[in-house]
């Protein structure tokens, strides 16, 4: 399928982001962080915990405006952004389907979502409230919400954290299925190297605080060929290039 509309890549050029603590101590979280995600590409930001990945994402989502530098989001097509947060962040007082539809612009509110719900295995759960879902199912609903909006760019903030490995693996495959149906420029934050190698076209490796880009690791192999043999090869060459990153 054709990637929709987007012609400009995701371009990030953050000069500095500083947090000031209550006592007036300032901590530089990001410094000279710049990278690019090509249009229609799935990229991962890989780095250790607490290295400012989520901060970067919050800046790109427009939730944190207190930084110096600039970034450019993919333009064209819908111009919308979508996010899958660390927590599912579903409204507990609305059903799964209402949660998904509320995120849609008015013109798309009535659109047919059967296919998306079927793919994500949520067909029977559209009228349930989030409290009635397991964490895994709630995350699927959060994925459904993000993909339903047909965004120009998709941000994912460790969407599979605190799930057991089996559930996380199932969800990764589901993510790939819905993503492949409509390849969208996507940026995912993760500290899980295997996850990054399995999902992405390019891995942007971050150094710890103040965060900057250590290097970029491109995975050119199509995803369907990434079996366990290939994965261990990828892992080895990754470790060869970035010996300090685990």
């Amino acid at each position: 399928m054709q990637p929709v509309g987007a012609v400009v890549p995701l371009k990030v050029d953050i000069a500095e982001k500083t947090f000031r603590s209550a006592r007036g101590v300032s901590i530089t979280a990001l410094q000279d962080l710049s990278f690019e995600v090509r249009q229609g590409e799935f990229a991962c930001l890989l780095g250790p915990s607490g290295c400012g990945k989520t901060t970067t994402l919050r800046i790109l989502l427009g939730l944190d405006k207190d930084f110096s530098g600039s970034f450019q989001l993919p333009q064209g097509g819908s111009n919308r952004i979508a996010a899958v947060f660390q927590e599912p962040t579903l409204l507990p007082w609305r059903t799964v389907e209402q949660n998904v539809r509320l995120a849609l612009p008015k013109s798309l509110r009535a659109k047919n979502l059967d296919g998306l719900f079927d793919t994500l295995g949520l067909a029977g759960m559209r009228s349930l409230y989030p409290a009635e879902l397991s964490l895994g199912l709630a995350r699927r609903a959060a994925l459904a919400r993000a993909f339903a909006t047909e965004p120009a760019v998709l941000f994912l903030d460790e969407p599979f954290v605190s799930l057991d490995e089996q559930t996380a693996e199932r969800l990764r495959h589901l993510l790939l299925t819905v993503w492949s149906a409509r390849p969208t420029t996507a940026l995912m934050v993760t500290h899980n190297l295997r996850e990054a190698l399995m999902l992405s076209d390019r891995i942007i490796v971050l150094a710890p605080r103040p965060t900057h880009v250590l290097g970029v690791f491109d995975v050119r192999l199509p995803r369907q060929h990434r079996n366990s043999q290939v994965m261990s090869d990828l892992l080895r060459s990754f470790h060869h290039r970035f010996p300090d990153v685990t």
Partner: peptide, 12 residues
């Protein structure tokens, strides 16, 4: 976090 979700998805 709900307000941030609403900002990202451009709730009216």
């Amino acid at each position: 976090s709900y307000a941030e979700m609403a900002t990202v998805y451009r709730f009216g």
